[in-house]
């Protein structure tokens, strides 16, 4: 439990020195696409992906414009959430490091209690759900409350994605 708390942006597989210094990253992790369009294909250009993160075990549903940035099942990608694209003391932008960037608003935080005992523990497990809308493209991030401390309602967020090969 204590190991997982340190998740936000401190020791992640980003060896780049800029990224290590980034304090404004609210969340980042490597995700693997588990399912594509769980409810069937509804839109031509937009795909809903279900992914799970490798470090924090977060579950994510995300609408991606696959017309310009195709994502398929079992792909791994690095996803980060940040309130700003600018980096400390430099002309460089966070955007340079990523391939796909969306901007949106955090509009809802809710909780879900599940009677799950997967990690050996007993009793109910509480999970926090973060809802962000990127101009109508939805993101739902669900996981342990300890990873969601930086989020606040009405926050404007950048979602950054880079594929890992």
């Amino acid at each position: 439990m204590a190991a997982r708390v340190a998740c936000p942006g401190v020791h992640l597989p980003l060896t780049n020195k800029f990224l290590v210094r980034m304090a404004e990253l609210l969340f980042d992790d490597i995700f693997r696409v588990e399912r594509v369009n769980p409810d069937g294909k509804k839109f031509d250009k937009v795909t809903r992906i279900e992914a799970r993160s490798e470090k924090c075990g977060m579950f994510m549903q995300l609408d991606v414009n696959t017309d310009i940035y195709p994502i398929v099942k079992d792909e791994r990608f690095l996803m980060a959430l940040s309130t700003s694209l600018s980096l400390e003391g430099g002309q460089q932008s966070l955007a340079d490091k990523f391939e796909y960037i969306m901007h949106g608003k955090l509009y809802k935080i809710s909780d879900e209690t599940r009677a799950k005992t997967s990690d050996g523990g007993s009793g109910p497990v509480i999970e926090v759900e973060i809802y962000v809308s990127f101009g109508g493209l939805q993101m739902m991030l669900k996981g342990d409350p300890s990873h969601c401390a930086g989020f606040e309602l009405e926050q404007r967020l950048f979602l950054l994605i880079r594929k890992l090969t």
């Binding site: 310009i68 990523f98 796909y100 901007h103 949106g104 990127f134 101009g135 109508g136 493209l137 404007r156």
Partner: peptide
Amino acid sequence: LPTPAILKPIELWTGKQ
């Protein structure tokens, strides 16, 4: 003009915006 919903690879706004 609002911030585009998709900034990269190309700037795109959605109909909802």
